[in-house]
């Protein structure tokens, strides 16, 4: 049986923890709102980009550039795993890593070579144990407070440089799509070769027939600049979705933690009061029986 002092200490320590989790929850809520706003603000660009790309790609005859059609091989897969820099956000990091890991094992058992590029430290920490040799690089975005396009652009450029150097054939992006505070969906998205929305192409073909596009400078040149940008945009979008998801996950997990701490305090307080009462009763009995003995 713990002494009264132990119980008191335990209660006050849980109270301190509760204060921290409560504060973290509120900070996450504020950050979430900002992350959500910037994710929404970035949406128009990505949508227009997609429709423009579908437009142009629909008009391209033949194979087109390698970023669109692929280099014809399917041997080396690069998994770009985007996770958070910090923990304490529930299953957010683990669920992305789990998806990537399953994919990596599936690819490896199919006889493909797998390479991994980690964006965010937490994913690296978790993947390092199993895929030490396959991890090509770790990109940390720890210093980034507000995700800007200039943070995503170098990653996109690096992917293209690696692709052109023949380091991989297919690149897939892993991130968490933000649905709501309690629901974030780990997602995989193939970015090289680019996947063009089939419906968009069909639609573009319909409208394209009535209004043929004029291309300045030329179709091929436009596609050659458009495709690399599209990759950066996809990375940027993934990072923004991730940022919102991370804060959402942190908010709900910290909410849970605060509630658990509250319950624990309640239980401990009852135990504390009971044992205090028992002690008082015991002392009274001792005094009374002592007085009677006289």
């Amino acid at each position: 049986m713990a002494s009264l002092k132990d119980l008191r200490n335990r209660i006050s320590s849980v109270k301190a923890t509760q204060k921290i989790t409560k504060a973290m929850q509120m900070v996450a809520a504020a950050k979430l709102r900002r992350a959500q706003l910037s994710a929404e603000a970035a949406r128009p660009y990505a949508e227009r980009m997609e429709s423009v790309l579908a437009n142009v790609a629909g008009g391209v005859t033949g194979g087109g550039p390698v970023l669109l059609s692929g280099n014809g091989r399917d041997d080396v897969h690069l998994l770009v795993v985007c996770t958070a820099e910090r923990g304490l956000c529930g299953a957010f990091n683990s669920s992305i890593v789990r998806l990537a890991r399953e994919r990596a094992f599936a690819l490896m058992s199919a006889g493909k070579t797998v390479k991994i590029l980690c964006v965010g430290k937490k994913g690296y920490d978790q993947l390092r144990r199993q895929f030490e040799k396959q991890i090509v690089e770790l990109i940390e975005l720890r210093s980034v407070k507000q995700m800007a396009f200039t943070d995503a652009d170098p990653i996109g450029k690096k992917l293209i440089a690696m692709f052109e150097a023949g380091e991989f054939d297919v690149a897939t992006l892993f991130f968490s799509r933000f649905r709501s505070v309690i629901l974030q969906i780990p997602t995989e998205l193939q970015i090289i070769p680019a996947q063009i929305n089939a419906a968009g192409v069909a639609q573009a073909a319909d409208t394209g027939a009535s209004a043929p596009y004029e291309y300045e400078p030329g179709e091929a040149e436009i596609l050659a600049t458009l495709l690399p940008r599209n990759i950066s945009v996809q990375v940027f979008r993934a990072l923004l979705e991730n940022a919102a998801s991370e804060q959402g996950a942190r908010m709900s997990s910290m909410d849970n933690a605060t509630r658990n701490a509250g319950e624990m305090i309640k239980k401990q307080t009852i135990i504390y009061n009971r044992s205090r009462q028992a002690m008082i009763t015991k002392e009274l009995i001792e005094i009374i029986s002592g007085a009677e003995a006289l």
Binding site: S38, A41, A42, P44, Y45, A46, R48, A148, F149, A152, S232, V233, F236
Partner: peptide
């Protein structure tokens, strides 16, 4: 007319 940058409209 719409002018969009990656960050916002």
């Amino acid at each position: 007319f719409e002018l969009v940058s990656p960050e916002r409209l």
